[in-house]
């Protein structure tokens, strides 16, 4: 699914990633941990093909064209990135609209995604009318509505209280199990990582410090 070999990325004189190597197989749930500035977001941006590596090789499964590749990846952001002038339904429908899906297919897929994140009662509301947890649920529904093979979640619980954060991660775990989606989640929430007992790739100062199939937050 994702194979990184000696991946290096620099921003000027700052080395964001330094010879990072790992492999993620389809269907895995992987936590990417490390303190702020450790290179988690840089790694996710490389996988989203927002930026290119300076050295090393990153092999990604999917189409060659960037926009087509991104359609096969669902992304969840810490700040949700929902459009304020669109309703919950419209926000979730956005990736399908971009793909040029027909209205009937959009409707079917959006309703399924809404059911999965348990937001049926909020369909017509706008982002400003939702709580933090609900906003992240909408973002997750938007990420899964196209049934992507890979979900990238960049600190999805960063803006949430511990209880809501736990619910969101549980939701991502459910989606991973039900849809067999590969999930790569960047976080520095130790409780969540330790609770789920999934694979952990730990980064510090741009280097992989630990890669454990049933890891803990260190």
């Amino acid at each position: 699914m994702i194979s990184a070999q000696n991946l290096t990325k620099k921003f000027g004189r700052i080395i964001a990633l330094d010879s990072v190597s790992f492999d993620i197989t389809p269907g895995e749930f992987v936590f990417l941990t490390g303190p702020s500035g450790s290179g988690k977001t840089t790694l996710l941006r490389l996988i989203m093909r927002e930026i290119k590596p300076d050295a090393g090789k990153l092999t990604l499964q999917g189409p060659v064209k960037i926009h087509e590749y991104r359609r096969t990846v669902g992304t969840v952001f810490q700040d949700f990135k929902l459009l304020a002038d669109r309703s919950v339904y419209e926000n979730i429908a956005l990736p399908l609209e971009i793909m040029g899906a027909v209205s009937a297919d959009i409707d079917k897929a959006v309703k399924k995604a809404i059911d999965l994140v348990e937001l049926s009662a909020r369909t017509d509301l706008f982002p400003a009318q939702l709580s933090g947890g609900e906003l992240q649920r909408v973002a997750i529904a938007r990420a899964i509505v196209t049934r992507p093979k890979l979900i990238l979640a960049d600190e999805p619980t960063g803006n949430l209280d511990p209880k809501t954060a736990k619910t969101i991660v549980k939701l991502l775990s459910t989606i991973h199990e039900q849809l067999k989606t590969t999930v790569l989640m960047a976080t520095h929430n130790a409780n969540i990582v330790n609770h789920l007992g999934k694979r952990v790739i730990a980064l510090d100062l741009g280097k992989v410090t630990n890669d454990n199939p049933k890891g803990k937050y260190e």
């Binding site: 927002e50 926009h67 991104r70 359609r71 992304t75 990135k81 459009l83 956005l94 971009i98 793909m99």
Partner: peptide, 16 residues
């Protein structure tokens, strides 16, 4: 700007 960046991340083409 943010909306356009989001569109790009969701796989929108330049034309869209």
């Amino acid at each position: 700007r943010d909306e356009i960046v989001l569109y790009q991340l969701l796989g929108a083409t330049g034309g869209y």
